[in-house]
Design a protein around this nucleic acid. Structure first.
Lengths: 130, 130
DNA sequence: ACGGTATTTCTAGAATGATCGAAACAGACC
DNA sequence: GGTCTGTTTCGATCATTCTAGAAATACCGT
């Protein structure tokens, strides 16, 4: 891990790896999807732990990892700490992954982007296939 | 990890975690981006190892992990084994992540998808910011 | 069959990560 | 201050992953 420092664009890559590693764990993946679903209100740490049936301290550790990865934000409301998914950060990771894809030949990855409409097809776009 | 088996949609989640874990490692992330850049021709295992300055056996292990995660495909050409990025599989992971996002309220994650045009803006879309 | 090239499997040591009990910390209410 | 509730930090254990040397496999040319 400390061997790739001299690569150009390393900082961004390091950030992406932090995010991917944070998501590559079942509990944390569920947490992120749960928080994405509960945008923009967010959810308190205890509620997340309860909902996913994980001890509070274990969940706290996971939330810390997601937070350090920049994928969630934490804000205190009196006693509770409300977590929210940072969808912009997630978007940045995806963009990083696809940045130089196909070396600028749209015919390769174009159709890929076509279908990237998860829950809400934007104005001028519609899903092309099943 | 063996505690979350009874969750609905587990198989898909397991697949996503496999992919995310595969990408959450600097060498493998570089490999995937390198292969994405070299679509659709692909690259031989040895060339990948050389390009990223990693021993062949270590690289082979990484390629095996990416392959088992479904993110790359391998095909033999005489002596060489040519690897290719499976961008469809990557797309599936992203779609899984965003599936139920915002619980069906387009105003939340709509703008997110707006900007998801990495290298090749599709027909009716153009990049909105720098 | 032999030698050479390309790649993978085997193996083991070092490093990293997950889990959770127990203790500590922070805020709210009386 | 005392005592709840909500959350995090500490510490220890257990499991997983990274890495690469050495050996094995697969294919090609002669």
């Amino acid at each position: 891990m400390e061997r790739y420092i001299d690569k150009s664009g390393y900082m961004e890559s390091e950030q992406a790896i932090l995010a991917l590693a944070a998501l590559a764990q079942s509990t944390r993946l569920e947490v992120f999807r749960l928080l994405a679903k509960h945008e923009p209100e967010g959810l308190a740490a205890g509620d997340i732990a309860k909902k996913l049936a994980v001890p509070q301290n274990t969940m706290s550790s996971h939330l810390g990892i997601l937070s350090r990865a920049g994928l969630v934000t934490a804000r205190r409301f009196s006693r509770s700490i409300v977590y929210r998914a940072d969808l912009r950060a997630f978007q940045a990771v995806v963009l990083f992954m696809l940045r130089d894809c196909c070396d600028g030949r749209p015919e390769i990855c174009g159709p890929l982007i076509e279908d990237l409409t998860p829950c809400c097809p934007p104005k001028t776009r519609r899903k092309a296939h099943a």
